[in-house]
Amino acid sequence: MPTADGPHARLQPPGGPTVTRQVDLYGLSWSDRLHRLMAAYRLTQARLAAVIGLSAPMVSQLISGQRVKISNPAVYGRVVRLEELAGSPGVRAGDPAEIARVLADVTAATPTLTTVAGPAEPRRPGEREQAVRHLAGLAPPTVLRLAAAAVPGTDLAALLGEAATADWVARPRG
C-alpha cells in the first residue's frame, strides 16, 4: 500500500517503520520469527515468552511491531537456538517428547553471544611480518595510527601500530 506521499513512495510492511527496522536488523520481522517458533514447537505466545525469558507483553509488543529489538543477549541467544533446533528431525516430526526436551534445554540455557572469533589458528612463519609490510605500503603512518586508535586494545590495533612505525617499506605519498 503506497503511503500518503504518492504511488511511488516506499511501501511499508504491516506494522510500519518499526517492523521495517526489525527486518533491517534481523532479516525478518519478529512477527515472522516468533510465529515460526510457535508453529514449530506448538507453543502459545505466553509459553514461548516463558521459554525465551521474556514477559508475554514484551513478546506481544515485538510481534505487533511496537518494539524493535530484544536487548538481552541471553534472550536473543535462546531465540536463535530454538530456530537452529526447529529443523531437527524430532521437532519437525512433532515428537512431543523431543519438543519438551528441546524446550527444557533452551529454557535452562544461559547463552552468551559474542562477536569475538574463536581461538586463532596458528600463524605461519612470517605471516605477521607480511601483513605489517602490506599495511605499511598501503597508507602513511598518520593514517595507520588513526586506524589503530579506532580499535584500541585489539590485535588489529597492534598490527596497525607496527605498520605505522615500520620504516623499511616504501610508503605511499600523502
Score class of each variant (00 low, 15 high):
residue 89 P to Y: 11
residue 112 T to M: 14
residue 124 R to F: 07
residue 62 L to Y: 10
residue 92 R to F: 10
residue 160 L to D: 01
residue 84 E to Q: 15
residue 129 E to K: 13
residue 159 L to F: 10
residue 81 R to I: 12
residue 116 V to T: 13
residue 79 V to C: 10
residue 75 V to G: 00
residue 133 R to N: 13
residue 45 Q to Y: 05
residue 88 S to Q: 12
residue 147 A to S: 05
residue 140 P to K: 08
residue 144 L to R: 02
residue 82 L to G: 04
residue 50 A to I: 03
residue 84 E to W: 09
residue 134 H to A: 14
residue 55 S to N: 14
residue 65 G to Q: 07
residue 54 L to S: 09
residue 53 G to E: 04
residue 116 V to H: 11
residue 143 V to Q: 07
residue 103 L to C: 08
residue 98 E to V: 07
residue 93 A to C: 02
residue 120 A to V: 09
residue 100 A to P: 02
residue 170 A to D: 13
residue 129 E to W: 15
residue 138 L to P: 10
residue 143 V to N: 03
residue 118 G to C: 07
residue 52 I to D: 04
residue 59 V to C: 08
residue 102 V to M: 06
residue 132 V to M: 05
residue 61 Q to E: 13
residue 104 A to N: 03
residue 134 H to L: 15
residue 122 P to V: 04
residue 76 Y to G: 12
residue 104 A to Q: 07
residue 91 V to I: 11
residue 74 A to W: 09
residue 106 V to A: 07
residue 126 G to K: 01
residue 96 P to I: 04
residue 102 V to I: 12
residue 105 D to L: 15
residue 143 V to S: 07
residue 153 G to N: 02
residue 158 A to R: 02
residue 99 I to S: 02
residue 127 E to P: 01
residue 163 A to P: 02
residue 58 M to N: 09
residue 125 P to D: 00
residue 123 R to N: 10
residue 45 Q to V: 06
residue 96 P to N: 05
residue 75 V to P: 00
residue 159 L to C: 04
residue 168 W to M: 08
residue 85 L to N: 09
residue 77 G to T: 05
